[in-house]
Nucleic acid binder design. Structure first.
Ligand SMILES: [Mn+2]
Ligand SMILES: [Mn+2]
Ligand SMILES: [Zn+2]
Ligand SMILES: [Zn+2]
Lengths: 145, 145
DNA sequence: TTGATATTGAGAATCAATCGCAGATGAGAT
DNA sequence: ATCTCATCTGCGATTGATTCTCAATATCAA
């Protein structure tokens, strides 16, 4: 499998855009760990590594990463968008604890199958889906008692 | 089944809040038709019926309607939140056309079952879910050819 | 009526996200 | 290496949704 760097390079080349140091650093940081981050967190992490990239460039690059399919918007919460890298991971959905806000990823064939079936039933050519399941994790349930 | 008015009245009474003319008008308008609206649309509809309610009150009342469970946030798009009334409807999810932005509602037992099963498998006490399926409707597919 | 409390509307404030633009940068071309 | 010129970046200003503040108003109970 090609690296995310190669994918992004190619995506940019195709649009006659440059693979700049800023874009490279942001890409690297986004793929440095697998989690669900927001712009503020991303900027902080870059800072801690000595990278001083402007907010505007972070937003601009994130938009490019989403357009390229390497990254996706996961959810809008606390008044702003959250992202995760998805290249190299197979499609998954999220269980979200309403207590501690923790997130558990899961993969489920029945859900994948449901997408196709429901699409067929309504004459939609489906391209994907997003499923969030809400609830309370064990810890939060025990805490409440 | 109790009317949404009764439910809201009771909800407000329980919090020692008043059922004002403004809240009544907003509630009525939200339940006047079943669709997926945003704050701007709601204000416009109220205007057209001669209601002149401040933006702040619309936002405040919408928050109360969500808290009461009569209304839910459906999706965040175009930079702002969209809502729908849900009281009196059984739970449903959405098929969303990426071409014309049209929305089709569907109910599917397999998805309901998946919520429970996945919750059990990860020791989550689930309270609900949100599933959006993306794709292209027939019209949009034909248009593209 | 009166007093206590809740509510409203208007505008200010907040905050994420986007924009405009002047100067910086980078990939050729010479 | 230098020149050229389109692309980029950072800064600051701007936009737009949502929330907040607060003075004036409305409601309820006594
Ligand atoms: Mn994830
Ligand atoms: Mn709906
Ligand atoms: Zn939890
Ligand atoms: Zn369509």
């Amino acid at each position: 499998m090609r690296s995310e760097v190669d994918v992004f390079r190619e995506f940019l080349a195709h649009k006659e855009m440059r693979f700049t140091p800023e874009r490279e650093a942001i890409l690297a940081e986004v793929f440095a760990e697998h989690d669900h981050f927001d712009v503020e967190e991303l900027i902080m992490r870059l800072r801690q590594k000595g990278q001083r990239i402007s907010r505007a460039s972070v937003y601009r690059t994130l938009a490019l990463l989403v357009a390229s399919g390497l990254v996706q918007e996961v959810f809008y919460e606390d008044g702003h968008m959250h992202y995760e890298h998805i290249y190299g991971h197979d499609h998954h959905c999220h269980l979200r604890c309403l207590g501690c806000r923790s997130i558990v990823e899961f993969r489920d064939p029945a859900v994948e199958e449901a997408e196709k079936r429901i699409g067929r039933g309504h004459d939609f050519a489906t391209t994907g889906h997003r499923l969030d399941i809400y609830g309370y994790c064990r810890q939060c349930r025990e805490k409440k008692e």
